[in-house]
Amino acid sequence: MSGLSETERAGFTKILSLMTKSDLLSLSDTVTNKMIVVENITAKETILAFTKNAEELLRRKKVQRDLIFKYLATEGVAMPPNSEKHMLIKRTLELWSSVKVVDENPQGEAASNSSDVNCGIGFDPLVLGQQFCQWFFQLLNSQNLSLGQQPQDWGPQHFWPDVKLRLLSKAGSEQMEEFLGADLVSLRFLALTRDERLLFSPNLDPRGLKALTSPHGLVLVAVAGTIHRDAVCLGIFEQIFGLIRSPLENNSWKIKFVNLKIRGQDALSGTDVAAPALTYNSSELQLLCS
């Protein structure tokens, strides 16, 4: 009976997981016209089974704007914090449509999975950068327990043993922290999302994302985005990743270094928070490759 694709069903499963029990049961009553009495454990499947199309369900009153915004953020899609619900619906439908195209392309499957992004002839660093950022921020944001999602497989295995993190934060005062080693770097990132409940929303548009390569095999990915806690935008971030393949682990990409700069609202002074752009130019990024 359902008219949803597998991609749409997977997306709705995540969105519905963010809803309260009462809202979930109420939505089930609406979708089924109260023809079926469901328990909490079957409400999600009932809603999906009786939904004719994705847009219809997204427009339901109980599928609140904040739920769609949080879902997009966990999928690595940056949206302005003040986006209206119809804009979020449009972007969600575009996301699901693009995923269906990728699913039909066998070469794209491994790339969207994890850090096991492989590239061969015709390698485009910008494509790798987009795929890597979608994977990384979805994985990192899943550690934020306030989203009500099952945390994904975060840990030191995604970093080189000698990885280095430089964290510069400007919120009132300026503070610089440095961490060396996969365990410490992994734990510091985990503290940002799990303990401080931060949510990173990267801007993967051309103004917010750059990628380039060095002759030595290093791929540099730079991305800007917004940082949130619940429905509040706290500021913006710029993050630079150095990625190197690991020949002993199926040539998967692992993180060699990270430079993370965070600016709170009081340090922005007129910056466009809705869709932040990178302040690093290509020459500055190229120096990090040398």
Rank of each mutant, 00 (worst) to 15 (best):
S186D: 13
L88F: 02
N281G: 05
G225A: 01
L67M: 12
L93T: 09
P276G: 09
L234I: 11
L260T: 12
A78Q: 10
L147W: 01
S2Y: 13
G208M: 06
D195T: 14
Q138V: 01
L128I: 15
V232C: 03
G225W: 08
R65P: 07
N82K: 11
P276A: 11
P106V: 14
K70C: 12
L187S: 14
P80R: 05
E174I: 15
L18H: 03
F137W: 13
T42K: 02
G172F: 11
V63L: 11
K14Q: 14
F237C: 03
N105F: 10
S252D: 05
L180M: 05
Q150I: 13
G270A: 01
G76R: 06
D230T: 08
L209F: 13
S142C: 10
V37Q: 13
A274Y: 12
K164D: 04
Q64R: 15
W160S: 06
G155Y: 04
K21W: 01
L184V: 11
S83N: 07
A78H: 13
T193G: 01
M19C: 10
L58I: 02
S115C: 03
K170V: 10
W96M: 04
V117T: 06
N118G: 08
C289R: 09
S246E: 12
G120K: 00
E174A: 15
A110G: 15
L248F: 07
G225R: 00
G235V: 05
W96L: 10
S173Y: 12
R263C: 01
S115M: 06
K170F: 09
M1P: 09
I255T: 14
S283N: 10
L167P: 01
E109M: 09
A73C: 01
K210C: 09
F69E: 09
F179Y: 14
D103T: 01
R207S: 15
W160L: 09
T213G: 09
S115E: 08
T226F: 07
S115L: 02
S252E: 10
G225M: 04
M176V: 14
L260H: 15
R197H: 13
N251M: 14
V273T: 15
Q134L: 13
D195P: 01
G122R: 00
L192I: 01
A274L: 03
I36L: 12
N281F: 04
T20L: 05
T30G: 06
A231V: 15
P81V: 12
Q239F: 00
A171F: 06
E109H: 10
Q175I: 12
